[in-house]
């Protein structure tokens, strides 16, 4: 397909999105990621029945935690697609890239830089 998607996106592979927990998403922000999104299989077609539903809940929970400490919850997101939908994968990547660019840099990363410089 030779599709292009933003090069600033790092893929972390998991056996099923059900493996993704709130802490994984939070840690990515602690480590300086500007945004994090989970791409799971289509709802209703999880090989383990409800892995992607669990992931969606955890993405929501992570968003709430971020919001409670003053970080925009839009920085975490859940997408669903089937493994055959490469074009959609690239489209979601571009969409997320756009959302994050509008929100700007992860404030934690900025604050850390400031603190390290002081």
């Amino acid at each position: 397909m030779r599709l292009e998607y933003p090069t600033n996106i790092k893929i972390v592979r998991v056996p099923c999105t059900g493996k993704v927990d709130v802490i994984h998403l939070l840690r990515s922000f602690e480590k300086g990621a500007d945004g994090a999104y989970v791409v799971g299989c289509l709802e209703g077609s999880c090989q383990y029945n409800n892995g992607n539903f669990r992931a969606r809940k955890r993405v929501e929970q992570a968003g709430e935690v971020l919001e409670s400490i003053g970080i925009e919850k839009e920085r975490v997101r859940m997408y669903n697609l089937s493994s055959g939908e490469g074009t959609l994968f690239a489209e979601y990547a571009r969409e997320m890239d756009k959302i994050i660019r509008e929100l700007g840099e992860n404030p934690v990363k900025k604050a850390k830089r400031k603190m390290d410089a002081a």
Binding site: V22, L26, E30, V65, I69, G70, I71, P107, V108
Partner: peptide, 15 residues
């Protein structure tokens, strides 16, 4: 884990 991570980010964010 979750609370510790959130608190670390909060305090860092607030300098």
């Amino acid at each position: 884990e979750v609370l510790a991570s959130a608190l670390r980010m909060y305090f860092l964010n607030n300098g």
